[in-house]
């Protein structure tokens, strides 16, 4: 559905030049929610804006459902943009227009005949749970409600793709959840393909099917979340499981055990203690709901090193667990 191929974009010239996009390629299948995570300044925002060509890449192509966006200009580009909805971190609503009028603006931009705008806008407001609030002005709404209007506006012209630019970053955690759930439900109901950028891993965990990690304008890792968490050494997985780094004086060997799929409920540690007669200490553990499945990671310090540690790890791996060394040993 969304095909980004070898995108490059540089701002400025000479030594002050900033490489915002460095050979970025991403493919998002229809109906999927794809999250791009990274720190601010990593190039996420530029990447998202190339999809509807708000930013034109220096080279590379953007193809949406067979239409090459980067080849379009003027009226054809405006036309194509109408099939891509976009929501913004700061909502970007017209302050002096009612929320009904804000949604109607999108319909007017999409050349929907005047007579149909009011009913279609009301329908969209209903979809996002703001029925009967059409007469209110943005300043009278909470942040979450404003973002709902932003979503209603983005969806008004019935796009097939939704771009989300840090849509929940200005919202409190509870409101964030409700907005994410809304995006998830419209993704399913309207078969909408969603590309979102965020710096919050919680957003990725909660609604994304796939994710990419961006650093300094380049994609350093991408994949389906269920695969990512099984990948040893994955930076994305490390961010999905927030565990504190081990202190220097922990035992000779520190390992991470990742439980995914059917392995989450096994009594691993008890078995280690019993069968290997080891006094393992748990440095940290977390259980997360990622892409709809339960997954966990436990960080253990083992009092043994070398061969003995390798034997333990091999045993764990035989049980179908994903084990990584953080300290000692050789994976």
């Amino acid at each position: 559905m969304i095909e980004l191929r070898n995108l490059r974009k540089t701002y400025g010239h000479g030594p002050a030049a900033v490489r915002a996009l460095d050979d970025v390629s991403i493919s998002v299948p229809a109906g999927e929610i794809f999250g791009v995570v990274g720190r601010s300044g990593a190039g996420k925002s530029t990447l998202l804006r190339t999809v509807n060509v708000l930013e034109r890449p220096d080279s590379g192509t953007v193809t949406l459902d067979g239409t090459q966006m980067t080849g379009l200009e003027g009226g054809a580009l405006r036309q194509a943009r109408r099939s891509v909805g976009m929501v913004f971190q700061h909502f970007n609503l017209l302050a002096n227009r009612s929320i009904q009028q804000n949604v109607e603006f999108a319909l007017e931009a999409a050349r929907v005949p005047r007579g149909k705008r009011a009913s279609q806008a009301a329908e969209m407001l209903d979809l996002v749970g703001l029925k009967d609030r059409g007469g209110a002005y943005p300043a009278q709404l909470s942040g979450g409600q404003k973002q709902r209007v932003g979503i209603a506006r983005a969806l008004a012209a019935k796009p097939r793709v939704l771009l989300s630019d840090e849509a929940t970053s200005a919202l409190d955690p509870e409101t964030t959840e409700s907005i994410l759930d809304l995006i998830r439900s419209i993704n399913r109901e309207l078969k909408l393909t969603v590309l979102l950028i965020t710096h919050e891993m919680d957003v990725v965990k909660r609604i994304c099917d796939s994710a990419a990690l961006m650093e300094n304008g380049a994609i350093v890792e991408q994949g389906e979340l269920v695969e990512v968490i099984r990948t040893p050494g994955s930076k994305l997985a490390a961010q999905l499981f927030p565990l504190a780094a081990p202190a220097d004086d922990e035992g000779p060997t520190v390992i991470d055990i990742t439980f995914a799929g059917g392995t989450a409920d096994r009594p691993v540690i008890a078995r280690l203690a019993r069968e290997h007669e080891l006094d393992v200490s748990i440095l940290g553990a977390t259980v997360e709901r990622i892409a709809g499945t339960q997954a966990g990671r436990t960080r253990l310090a083992l009092p043994v090193a070398g061969e003995a540690a390798a034997a333990v790890v091999a045993d764990l791996r035989r049980q179908g667990l994903i084990v990584e060394y953080l300290k000692g040993g050789a994976a």
């Binding site: 970007n92 603006f105 007017e108």
Partner: peptide, 26 residues
């Protein structure tokens, strides 16, 4: 607000619509 220009563009609005509905009303 600068974000409104980008928003109008993302909606496929013409410059004329941008002027009428965004710049003049805001």
């Amino acid at each position: 607000a600068p974000g409104l220009y980008e928003t109008a563009d993302s909606l496929g609005a013409t410059k004329w619509l941008l002027i009428r509905r965004v710049l003049l009303t805001e």
